[in-house]
């Protein structure tokens, strides 16, 4: 587990390198969601580049598609993509590496970008697994600002109605969106009570950037029968460096050269402390 904690910081560095190379990216949410992705891809999910069409694989849907740079970093480390190629071509003319998930790339199941799409699709995937008697688990990551889209609540309703205990929705609850605090823009709290009222098992993480806590939640979700689980990962937007932590302005931003160097110093220090 210690190595995965260090890996999360290594992949943050890869993420920022991708953003620097492409000249754009949703850096704040990339940083907040990293431990969730690391735990899913390196501990929980049955996925690999050798089994992209395996009917028994687990499914991952990135509903907050704009956290694509973090997703690229994870897919590269997992062996689906080549980091050097992603860095060389991200956002460039005629590149396959765009700013949102695109399923012509290996390892990506569904396209997203416009918010509020992932959860209903995940409900469909989980329903198919149930119909077939498959052991697949389905994970979908949404943002918190994204939850203002009503389609998510249609998905919460149907996920519970169909009793999809193979479905797990992770909310990257970093409390910030483009215009500021989620609670000022369109208040979500009490989010746990809301999702519970929709019939889901809800696990609220004290620290959604703590891999131990995240993994324990996923393990616990597997034991719940008859209803889906929602993990509210209380994360820090821009996690990894004080330069960007908890600052709404870093939702989409490219660091200056000086900021980049400072961020990388911070990330390296954290990684070394965990190594």
């Amino acid at each position: 587990m210690e190595n995965l904690k260090a890996l999360a910081y290594e992949l943050r560095k890869d993420t920022i390198d991708i953003i620097m190379a492409g000249g754009g990216g949703h850096i704040g949410g990339d940083m907040s969601v990293m431990e969730v992705l690391v735990d899913l891809y390196f501990r929980q999910m049955n996925v690999s580049p050798q089994q992209t069409e395996d009917p028994d694989r687990d499914y991952f849907i990135m509903s907050k598609g704009h956290s694509m740079e973090a997703y690229y970093a994870v897919l590269c480390r997992k062996g689906f993509l080549e980091l050097d190629d992603v860095k060389a071509r991200f956002s460039r003319f005629n590149s396959p590496y765009i700013g949102h998930p695109h399923n012509t790339l290996p390892g990506i199941e569904m396209n997203s970008g416009s918010l509020g799409h992932g959860l209903p699709v995940a409900v469909g995937l989980a329903l198919a697994a149930k119909k077939r008697g498959g052991a697949n688990r389905v994970y979908v990551v949404t943002g918190d600002g994204e939850l203002a889209e009503g389609s998510n609540w249609e998905g919460f309703m149907s996920g519970a109605m169909f009793g999809l205990d193979n479905l797990c929705c992770i909310i990257d609850r970093n409390y910030l969106q483009i215009s500021g605090s989620t609670e000022d823009v369109m208040a979500l709290d009490d989010l746990k009570a809301k999702v519970e009222a929709f019939g889901w098992n809800v696990i609220s993480l004290k620290d959604g950037n703590d891999l131990d806590e995240i993994d324990a939640a996923f393990e616990s979700a597997k034991t719940v029968k008859g209803r889906p689980t929602c993990v509210i990962a209380n994360t820090v937007k821009g996690k990894g460096s004080p330069v960007m932590e908890n600052k709404a302005g870093w939702h989409h931003k490219v660091p200056t050269r000086e900021q980049y160097e400072e961020i990388v110093r911070d990330l390296n220090a954290k990684k070394e402390a965990l190594s």
Partner: peptide, 15 residues
């Protein structure tokens, strides 16, 4: 919206 999203998920899983 749920109707079409769920249908897409089912299709992705081979239905």
């Amino acid at each position: 919206q749920d109707l079409v999203g769920i249908a897409a998920g089912l299709a992705k899983a081979g239905m």
